[in-house]
């Protein structure tokens, strides 16, 4: 749906309500599901990915895709014997599938990370945790991004 897709962060706002003068050229910026799979495999390798243990808190309806609050937490005792090594967050439709990699250790105490991300469009976000036993656990969420009704022209 190229007519309703917002550009990935138009420069200083981008187009008017009318989509008049595209300040930023429209390009096929969308990552493909294949790119998402590749990005995930780059981190996980051939290991199986199980669903569970990871929780992704992100508003189901986002007011503006430019700044989306997100918290990932993993159910883990965070002891020397059993802890979360890392958390990896990916998206489906931004120009690039990676969002962030976060490295933890037993001294973290709690396996939880918050940040703010950009979502170019309504899409899936995937969070994967690597535990100390090198198993991978994931969660997926569908996020609806509200498109700004009025954005501004670049002056």
């Amino acid at each position: 749906m190229p007519t309703t897709r917002r550009q990935f962060l138009s420069l200083a706002g981008g187009v008017t309500v009318a989509g008049t003068i595209p300040i930023v050229t429209l390009r096929p910026l969308e990552a493909t599901p294949a790119m998402l799979t590749t990005a995930i495999r780059n981190v996980v390798g051939e290991a199986p990915i199980r669903t569970g243990r990871v929780k992704l808190d992100i508003p189901p309806l986002v007011e503006n895709g430019n700044t989306v609050p997100m918290t990932v937490s993993v159910a883990s005792p965070m002891t020397a014997a059993d802890y979360v090594k890392s958390i990896h967050v990916f998206n489906e439709k931004n120009p690039q599938p990676n969002i962030g990699n976060f490295y933890l250790n037993p001294a973290s105490g709690r396996a939880q990370v918050s940040t703010r991300i950009r979502l170019a469009d309504t899409q899936k976000v995937v969070a994967i945790a690597r535990l100390s036993d090198d198993t991978f656990w994931q969660v997926m969420a569908d996020i609806v991004v509200t498109l700004a009704a009025c954005t501004e022209e670049m002056n």
Binding site: T3, T4, V17, A18, G19, T20, L147, A149
Partner: peptide
């Protein structure tokens, strides 16, 4: 009608 540029759907 569905294109935001024509403004109907707004």
């Amino acid at each position: 009608v569905l294109a935001r540029t024509t403004t109907c759907i707004l």
